[in-house]
Simulated assay, not measured.
Amino acid sequence: MTLHRPDVSIISINGKTPKIDDRAFIAPGCRIIGDVVIGPESSIWYNCVVRAEVNRIVIGARTNIQDGSVIHCDGPAPGFPDGFPTLIGDDVLVGHNVLLHGCVLKDRAFVGLSATVMNGATIEGDAMLAAGSMLTQGKHIESRQLWAGSPARFVRDLDDAAVMGMRMGVAHYVENAKAHAAAIAQS
């Protein structure tokens, strides 16, 4: 991945510069700003914004942030002296047009299309927030649970097939990112 492409903005602010692993895929149209770390084989898809000027954002290995998603964080506030960083683990699936704000997604979490996850919320590994849902501040989705709605509520436990499907999705996006990187390099 080349950080000096004219179709991607990598911006330092407040003395912080994004740290992006050379094996990560950053698609055209992305804006990555400030105290951001992106791990190996992760993919940030077309027209995403990852902005960390008031706190930090960490994205682990093999995680995908799909097209049009926005990731932000929150700085210190009364009652919250550390603010709310956004911490995303390894092998996480984040659907198209998702908003992640000051939340924690543990390894192997899943966030469906157009969902919102707010400050202080946590999604454990092998858990899923359904498409279009809003996980409000401070809520916690336990491992192997599906939550849906706005505000999101527990729906049911996930079976082995659902968990395996999420893991297959991670592998698909790692390979798909390689194909897109090759296509961009040839264009």
Rank of each mutant, 00 (worst) to 15 (best):
R62M: 06
I57V: 05
V36W: 05
P78A: 10
G138H: 03
L87Q: 14
P76Q: 06
F25T: 04
P18A: 00
G15L: 11
V37Y: 08
F25A: 10
I38H: 08
N176I: 05
R5A: 06
G120V: 02
I88R: 05
V58N: 00
D35N: 15
S12I: 06
I32H: 03
V117D: 02
N14Q: 07
S43N: 14
G29L: 02
D7M: 05
V8Q: 03
V54E: 09
L100F: 05
V50E: 04
M164Q: 15
L129F: 10
G39K: 03
A27G: 09
V36F: 06
I65D: 03
P18R: 08
K106E: 15
Q186W: 09
V98P: 05
D22L: 04
S143E: 11
N14P: 02
D82P: 04
A115L: 11
T17N: 10
M168S: 09
I123L: 10
T136G: 01
V117W: 09
V58Q: 04
E124L: 01
L113Y: 13
E53G: 12
P18F: 00
H96N: 01
A131Q: 06
V117C: 02
D107Q: 12
I88E: 02
I20Y: 10
G132P: 00
G120L: 01
A183H: 15
V8D: 01
V174A: 12
G120K: 04
G68I: 06
C48R: 03
R167L: 03
I32D: 00
L93D: 14
I59N: 01
K16V: 11
G138Q: 04
G39I: 08
L129Y: 07
Q137V: 07
I32E: 04
I11R: 07
G89M: 13
Q186H: 12
Q66K: 10
T86G: 06
R23A: 14
G138P: 04
I88F: 10
I32S: 00
D159S: 09
P28V: 05
G68A: 12
A162P: 00
A121C: 01
D107L: 13
V174L: 09
N47A: 05
D22Y: 09
H172I: 07
V92S: 01
G95H: 12
H101T: 13
N55D: 06
A179R: 15
L135Q: 03
P151M: 14
E142F: 05
P6L: 08
M166C: 03
S9Y: 07
E175I: 04
F25D: 02
A162L: 13
T116N: 07
D7T: 12
V117I: 12
H140Y: 10
Q145A: 14
N97R: 13
D91R: 04
T2D: 14
P81S: 07
F110Y: 15
N64W: 12
V70K: 05
E124D: 15
Q137D: 06
L113F: 15
F80K: 15
I44A: 08
G132Q: 09
Q186K: 14
A185P: 10
R62E: 11
G89F: 09
I11D: 08
E41K: 13
I59R: 00
G15T: 10
H101C: 02
A162F: 01
N176L: 13
